[in-house]
Amino acid sequence: MNLKFDRMASIVFLALGILVVVESQKISTSAYGSQIGPSTFPIGLGIILIILSIFLFIETIKHKATYKIVGEEEDIKSPNYKRFFIIFIAALGYVLLLEKLGYLITTFAFLVIGFQTLEKGKWVPTIIIAATFSAFIYYGFVNVLGGSLPGLPFL
């Protein structure tokens, strides 16, 4: 458990609750004259969220002692963070380029980056597995099952 995270989360959820209640007022009311409109449910939820986030904030104060105050916080520069960032950025690029470059190229590139980030070297199995996986999913899904995926950009 992380005191800082919980406290921040309670503030974020409180803000979210208030935002929901405020934004729900803007939902246009329905035509027929029932007082239970499309905004009733979200407003109720927003109020519950506000109450719960206050509870959570109180809990973080009351149970301060039970939270472990240890320097377990992972260092931003630790190798695990670096691995995560590389893979996450690669996945983001994969997702954004999927429709432009097609499924085969982006999947192959993402897998090669992923495999090499987790363990450097062994290029031959890396390339074989990445290529087999991309080709297998693409041809299996498109040709055998009759689904549809973005193909190669120059065809």
């Binding site: 999947t107 993402f110 897998l111 992923g114 996986f133």
Partner: peptide, 9 residues
């Protein structure tokens, strides 16, 4: 990485 790729697919 393969689980990520399968999820995206």
């Amino acid at each position: 990485p393969i689980i990520i790729a399968i999820s995206i697919f």
